[in-house]
C-alpha cells in the first residue's frame, strides 16, 4: 500500500488520514440507462495489477475527494489531484 500521499491542499500525509472509496474510472450511467449498464456500474469492477486510478477522501485533513493514480504492485504514487479538477475533463 502506498503509504505517503501528497494531498494537493495539505501536502504529504500518511495514508491513515485517508478513506479509500475505490476505482475512479466507472462513470455513472444516465438514470434511465439499461439494467445491464447499472449492474455493471454498481457491481462489476476490473481487478488490474499495476497503474490504477482511485477515489480517496482526505477525511482527517481537508476532507476533499481526491483522485490518486498509483501502482498497486510497486506502491508508487504517480499523481494526486482534486476530484473536482480531475472530473472537469471527463464532464
Amino acid at each position: 500500500m502506498a503509504s505517503l500521499i501528497s494531498c494537493p491542499h495539505c501536502g504529504t500525509r500518511p495514508k491513515e488520514e485517508f478513506f479509500i472509496r475505490g476505482d475512479a474510472n466507472p462513470v455513472r450511467p444516465a438514470p434511465m440507462a439499461t439494467d445491464e449498464a447499472w449492474n455493471d456500474y454498481v457491481h462489476l469492477r476490473v481487478n488490474p495489477r499495476g497503474r490504477i486510478r482511485e477515489h480517496w477522501q482526505h477525511v482527517a485533513g481537508c476532507r476533499r475527494w481526491l483522485v490518486v493514480e498509483r501502482d498497486n504492485f510497486t506502491h508508487e504514487v504517480f499523481a494526486v489531484t482534486d476530484a473536482a479538477k480531475a472530473g472537469e475533463g471527463a464532464r
Binding site: C10, G11, P14, E17, V59, A60, G61, C62, R63
Partner: peptide
C-alpha cells in the same frame, strides 16, 4: 495551519 490526524483524532 492544517487539519491533521493525531493518533486517531482529527
Amino acid at each position: 495551519a492544517a487539519n491533521v490526524l493525531c493518533n486517531h483524532l482529527s
